[in-house]
Structures are given as C-alpha cells and as structure tokens.
Design a protein around this nucleic acid. Structure first.
Lengths: 324, 324
DNA sequence: ATAGTGATTGTAACCGCTTACAATTTCGCA
DNA sequence: TGCGAAATTGTAAGCGGTTACAATCACTAT
C-alpha cells in the first residue's frame, strides 16, 4: 500500500516514450507531436504526477520566485495580507517556490521574480507598466480589464450584507468605511444599491479599515447624533471597533444596533462572534496561482470573481417587526 | 569575476579528501578523524561553502521543516508574530527549510517537524514535555532554564524606557499592560524597579497589548481620574491606542503626557513617531536558528538575551524642570 | 613478524529532472 | 521511387549532495 509518488520514469514507461519527451511535454517545448503530448498528459493526469521541485531546482540551477507587491509599503502587517500570504505559501512552499515581498516601488529590483502578484492595483498603476515592460508575468488581486486578475465579489458581498440587515427589518442603515480605494468603493456601491432597492435609508461614515479607526468613527458619529439600527462595516476590524464603541456608549449590540462586517477573518483580537461576509481567501490564493501559471505559459488574460459567503454570527438581530 | 558558488567537490579537492568525507563532516557523522574534520571545516569556512538545499532534499528524499508553535491559536496575526516569522523566513526560505505554523496543541501532529520554535512558553508548558518525549529539538522564544532559548531583554528594556521618562523629569508614571504573561510581568517588573530607583510614583493599568485595548484602558483610567505625566506601554500597539485616547480626551502628547512603547514595530497602522524600545527581531530570529542547529547537533542547551534599544520618537517631552 | 580489529576514507551508484546531441521517422518533391 | 530536410524522439551526461560498501591504515595480541 505504501506507494511512492510517481516519477518522470513512471510517466515515461506508462506512456511508452522516453523521459526526455515527458520532460519536454512538462515544459511546454513545442517540439513534441501533439498526439504524443496528449497521451503523455493523460498519463500525467491519471497518475497524478507532479515534478519534484527539488530536482527541477537542481537541474535548472535556480529556483522559482513569486513576488507580492502591496499597494503601499506598510500593509504587510494587516491581517488580510497576512492571511492571504499564508494561503499562498501553503501552495508555493511545497513547490519550492519562494515568496518575495516587494515594496510598492518595483524599480531597481536586483533580481526579477519569475512572476508577480499585484495587490489592489489602481487604474494606471505604474507597477503594471513596469512589469509589462520587463516581461514579468503579473496577476492582479482586484479587477482590471486586459490583465489576469482575481478578486472577491465585493459589490455582491456588500449587497448580501446590506440585504441581510434590511431583511431583518432595519431601515436606518450606516456604511462604515467610505474611502478612495477600489475595494472601499465597490463595497460602498453595493451597500448603497442594496439599501436603495430595499427602500432603506443609509448614511456613509468615513473610516479606515482598522479596529481603532472603526471605533473612533462610530463613537464620534454616534456622539454627534447620527443614528442607525443596522451597520455594515467595510472590514471585520472596523466592525469590531464599531461594536466596541457602541458598547462603550451603552448601546447594545445586537439589541439596539446590528452589525455586519466583511472579510471573514477567523481570529480577530477582539473576541466576538461577528456576523460577516467571508471571503474565500484560500480559493483566491489558489486561483491567483493558477492564473500565474497561465500567464507564464502565455495564455490570454482573464479574470475571475470569487464568491463570498454570509456568516451568521451574533451581532445581528431583527428589528422589531422584521424577520432575521 | 563571475565565480560560482563552491560545491562539495571544491571543498573536497581543496582539503585533499573525498566528497564522501566532506559530506560526513557536514552531517556530523562521528566517523571522521578530528584532524581531518578540522581541516575540512577550515576550508568550508574559508570558501564560504554552504550545501545546496535542493541537492540535499533530492538525496534525502525529503525536505527540512521548522515548526513554530504559538502560545495560543490566534496570535498568528499579531504584528510581532508576523514580523518574527518573516525574519525567520528570510533565512529559512533560501535554505529550503519549510516553516510550519503549529497550533498550540502539538499532539497528533501528522508529521513532526525537524525542529520547533516555541513562542512564549510558560513554566511547565505541556508542549515542552511533548517535544522532549518525541526527541524533537526545541528552542524557546522567552527564557527558561534547561532549554535552548533566546529572548529580548524585557526587564532591561522596561528599565530603559522608564528611566527615559524619569530622566525627562517625570514623577507621576503609569505602566500600561499589567497581565499574566511572562513578557508582561518582566516588563512591569522592570518598570516598577526603575521607577522605585528614581523615586518616582508609578501606577499599573491593566490592558492587553492591542491598540483598542490600550485606547480603552487609558481612556477609562483617565476619565476616572487617574493622572500621570509619563506612560510606558508594554507594546507599541497599546501605546498607539493610548496616544489616540489621550488625543480624544484633549490631552496633548507629548505636551501634557509623554508616552513610550515597546517592540519597535516599524509600521503601525496609526501614523505616529512613537518613542519606543526596539527589539532586534532579525537578530532574535537568526539567533534562534543558530540555536536550532546546536539543538539538532546535540550541544548542551544555552540561552541568550538580545539587547534592546531606545528609539527616540516624538512622544516624549521633558517635564518642566526635567531634561530629556 | 602476522593475522585480526576497529577506525578512517575513497568509490560509485543513486535521488528526479533537464537538455545537448545523436538517432530515427516522416514528408515534400524531383 | 528515392533523397535530403524537417520533425520528432531517444540517450546519456550532468546538477550537488548522500551513503552503502569496499578499501586502507594503524595498532594490538599472538
């Protein structure tokens, strides 16, 4: 029963060709007859073969690297980035692919990575031109035509969250997180659209996505008389801050105000069963890696939205008269 | 000029032995005459040779793994953990050593790592026995006799921070962070000792090490009448929260209250030139890895404190009459 | 001296994959 | 139908280590 992983020899034998040919199929060398290529690929798929990264490394005399470029230099520490990076690592590490954190400024990189993941690129981001010029395959996290990209369905998720609140009977809503980033805008857009459709009022409160940012924004707003019974925050962290602020103000959550977050971070510092819209970070990461492969091979660019999912926690209650 | 990395053959030739012998030296096999061993080691050092991880991996049929066990399951997301992990990665990734995040509960690990880094072990931590029983080399981050360990000088750092405040003339101090962990206790101990020595008053305010935790604790304390002109926080994050709280209360920092943090996190979410006691995280990480090697080879356990350093930011001002 | 030991060291066969080069097959066309 | 060029495939030599096994060596007990 203790079968060992198949090697290139197994594939060669099983498909009646030489290891050289299998290797050529593996590396997309064009000098393989298509009939042969298909046969070999079938066998590879059937036997679930994957080339040993260490052996390739040894033979190539160099390993593969994947760069991650963040929009600014600091967000490396934000929980979402950390989780995303970790999800990537789960796939790349066993493949011997080394992750490199890239500063926002890509120019004068001593050694170019084999490919780059660009986080949250804005329109006309200089990083994109740079990579294009250098011929480095790139995949964006966030959506942008003419590129490989993958992103969570921010608009849809925001609608989902907002509908969850209106569905529970809330009519006075607030969106926490107004801001210039594509993500913030998409989420605000979805929230406003859903509120409009449901005939509910919604007010936007400016805030970054941090815990303290959410706390201060909500506390200030509430103290200055802003009122709502349902709050949708653009991030779980600001949602956590919002809950804390409301508690400190003597407002019961979810008794008086219901709160929904976004991201689905599993482990927030604050202990709280937050109702939230969860992103499928592992899936975003693995999709990104698939796209990287496609980009390297030179397929035409495409993008993909990854579905989000509502997680029912303990921070939403029906408004008197509404159902949850 | 484009010399290539030396290989095991270079070492063998240069020291007049066979590759087999070099390899045996490399792996600490006892069957090498000590004179030969030394000669080979000299050459290795002189030529700056390091075995190619990919080649070893191929030959061993398996790679090396280094586990990191956190004290609880969540702190994986805390900035300090992230930075520490990243510092480790900078060394391990090029070596082909794979980092594994370990849950606090180590039992029923499907595959044991080659060695484990244990973060913040408490006295009699069950993880330590587990590892000892399984014969897995372990290095602790934090200090504990009879083990390999490395830790920042928490007590000394706290003294440094506190003396910085008393030196600036402050006599009414507060320590933010009182808690049960070894780290919190060491830092509190250092702070109390230094305050005592300087003849200053100091009060402890309980708080976790998060931004919001610091914010709420300080705000509550201040609102209930607690007063101080110098605050030493056990973490940069809680220090940042404290500063925010004081600002919100209309207290000027550093005009009315001076604040010192701990950790030296380079990029806090809050924008702030914090005066802080910086840990040398890269050095802690590389020391930990050195100790891992020693533990694997079977040397006797030892520990090391890593110096900390005061970073003068913009959150400390002299108390009228004091000098800074 | 001399065979018998244990301690050291050298030799060479892998580990799994890539690739230059040689060998073979397939075709287009005279 | 025959020939050379092009297309395809096979062969084998590495890549940089590890390690089982054989070969030496230095001594000790006859």
């Amino acid at each position: 029963m203790k079968s060992t992983r198949p090697t290139i020899d197994d594939i060669a034998r099983e498909s009646g060709v030489s290891t050289g040919t299998v290797s050529r199929v593996l590396n997309g060398h064009s000098t393989v007859a298509s009939r042969t290529r298909e046969r070999v690929q079938d066998v590879i798929a059937r036997l679930g073969y994957a080339p040993d990264p260490a052996a390739r490394h040894l033979s190539w005399r160099t390993g593969q690297t994947l760069g991650i470029s963040f929009e600014r230099d600091d967000p490396v520490l934000h929980p979402y980035s950390v989780l995303f990076r970790r999800a990537l690592e789960a796939h790349t590490a066993p493949q011997g692919v080394q992750l490199m954190d890239l500063r926002a400024d890509l120019s004068r990189l001593t050694r170019l990575p084999s490919a780059v993941l660009v986080m949250h690129a804005m329109d006309g981001d200089p990083r994109l031109n740079f990579l294009r010029d250098r011929g480095v395959p790139a995949v964006l996290i966030g959506h942008q035509p003419d590129f490989f990209w993958v992103a969570p369905d921010d608009v849809g998720g925001a609608e989902l969250a907002t509908r969850h609140l209106t569905g529970a009977g809330h009519r006075q809503l607030a969106f926490l997180g107004q801001g210039p980033s594509q993500v913030a805008q998409d989420r605000e857009r979805g929230a406003l659209a859903a509120a409009l459709t449901a005939g509910a009022q919604i007010i936007s409160i400016a805030s970054d996505f941090t815990v303290l940012g959410g706390y201060r924004a909500v506390r200030r707003a509430w103290e200055s008389g802003v009122r709502f019974t349902g709050l949708f925050a653009q991030s779980d962290e600001s949602a956590a801050g919002a809950v804390a602020a409301l508690q400190d103000l003597g407002v019961n959550v979810p008794g008086q105000v219901s709160v929904v977050g976004f991201d689905g971070l599993p482990e927030l510092p604050i202990n709280l069963r937050l109702t939230t819209v969860a992103q499928d970070i592992p899936r975003i990461a693995s999709t990104a890696l698939t796209l990287v492969q496609e980009a390297i091979v030179g397929l035409p660019p495409r993008g993909e939205f990854i579905e989000v999912q509502l997680i029912r926690g303990a921070t939403v209650a029906p408004f008197p008269g509404g159902k949850i």
